[in-house]
């Protein structure tokens, strides 16, 4: 769907050249929600703007649907852009137009007839959950509603790709979640490819299938969201994973656990992409003659299933505990006995 090769962007200032995006290679599949995460200055904003050529690349190619955006002529680029929707951190709606007319704008640009335009706008207003607000002006809407208008506008010309430039960064956590739900909904309903950039791991965790971590203009780590969560290789990735998994807290509490429970029956259970074994604990206490004491843990949901760790203490016969460990090993949950701090 999107294939990026050797993509670079160098900004030439008076006294130095700044490489914002450095020789990037990437493939994004159709229907995928692809997240790019990085701190400010990592080059992710420049990266997403290269995809619809709001920035002209210094080198490389961006092939979207067999068309190299990087080498298109002016008019071809305009037409290609009508197939690429984009939403923004600050929504960028026209204050002078109503919700209805804002959504109609890209249709006017594409030369769609008035009657068809109105019909399409009504569909879109329905799709993003703004029914009845068509005649409101953006200034009368909340941040979340504004972003819904932004999404409807971006989808107006039935694009093949949706680019999200920090689309939830200006919203509160609750509104962020509702917008993310909407994006997942659209992704599934329309089989739309979504590329988003963010600095919040929460966003990646909640909706992305694939993630790339950017630092210094390069992609330093990339893969399935669960894999990256499970085995973060680079320091920057670990920091992002900690954002949602609260790792420093875990270190701390693991020491406490070791100090408090001197027994040798502490187990660390690792849930990865698991939906079927959610009832593992109750399963164990039913099947085996032991007591289970949950000490610490965090399980979180990603698009590819649950992910997280749970620290538990088993008390009972040594024999029985070994049986339990054996049982857990037969499931897809990973287990570690007496984990080190």
């Amino acid at each position: 769907m999107i294939s990026i090769k050797g993509l670079s962007k160098v900004f030439q200032t008076k006294d130095q050249a700044v490489t914002a995006v450095d020789n990037l290679d990437l493939t994004i599949e159709k229907g995928e929600i692809f997240g790019v995460i990085g701190y400010s200055g990592a080059g992710k904003s420049t990266f997403i703007r290269l995809l619809n050529r709001l920035e002209d690349p210094s080198a490389g190619s961006v092939v979207i649907d067999d068309r190299d955006v990087a080498s298109l002529k002016k008019k071809e680029l305009r037409l290609a852009r009508q197939d690429i929707g984009m939403i923004f951190q600050h929504f960028n709606l026209l204050w002078s137009r109503t919700v209805h007319d804002n959504i109609a704008f890209p249709l006017e640009v594409a030369g769609v007839a008035k009657k068809e335009r109105d019909q399409r706008v009504e569909e879109l207003i329905e799709l993003v959950g703004l029914a009845g607000r068509g005649q409101s002006y953006p200034s009368q809407l909340s941040g979340g509603q504004k972003q819904r208008v932004g999404i409807a506008r971006a989808l107006a010309n039935k694009p093949k790709v949706l680019l999200c430039d920090e689309a939830t960064s200006a919203l509160d956590p609750e509104t962020t979640d509702s917008i993310l739900d909407l994006l997942v909904d659209i992704n599934q309903k329309l089989n739309l490819t979504i590329v988003l950039i963010t600095h919040e791991m929460h966003v990646i965790r909640k909706i992305c299938h694939q993630v790339a971590v950017m630092e210094g203009g390069k992609i330093v780590e990339q893969g399935d969201v669960l894999d990256v969560f499970l085995h973060p290789q680079k320091k920057v990735t670990k920091r992002f994973v900690d954002q949602v998994m609260g790792d420093p807290e875990k270190e701390n509490s693991l020491n406490l656990i070791h100090d408090t429970y001197k027994s040798d029956s502490i187990l660390k259970l690792h849930f990865v992409g698991e939906n079927t074994n959610q009832a593992l604990i109750s399963d164990i206490s039913r099947k085996f003659n032991i007591d289970v004491n949950i000490l610490h843990g965090k399980i979180t949901q990603t698009q590819k299933g649950a992910y997280g760790t749970l620290f538990v203490q088993f008390s009972g016969e040594q024999n029985e505990i070994e049986n339990v460990v054996g049982y857990i090993q037969s499931t897809t949950v990973e287990v570690e006995v007496n984990p080190s701090a």
């Binding site: 709001l54 290609a80 923004f88 709606l93 704008f105 640009v109 594409a110």
Partner: peptide
């Protein structure tokens, strides 16, 4: 940002000026 959004939608200069 609004001008950028219009560009990203593939608007012609004429549309950007008048709309």
């Amino acid at each position: 940002g609004v001008l950028e959004a219009a560009k990203a939608m593939g608007a012609k200069y004429r549309s950007i000026i008048f709309k």
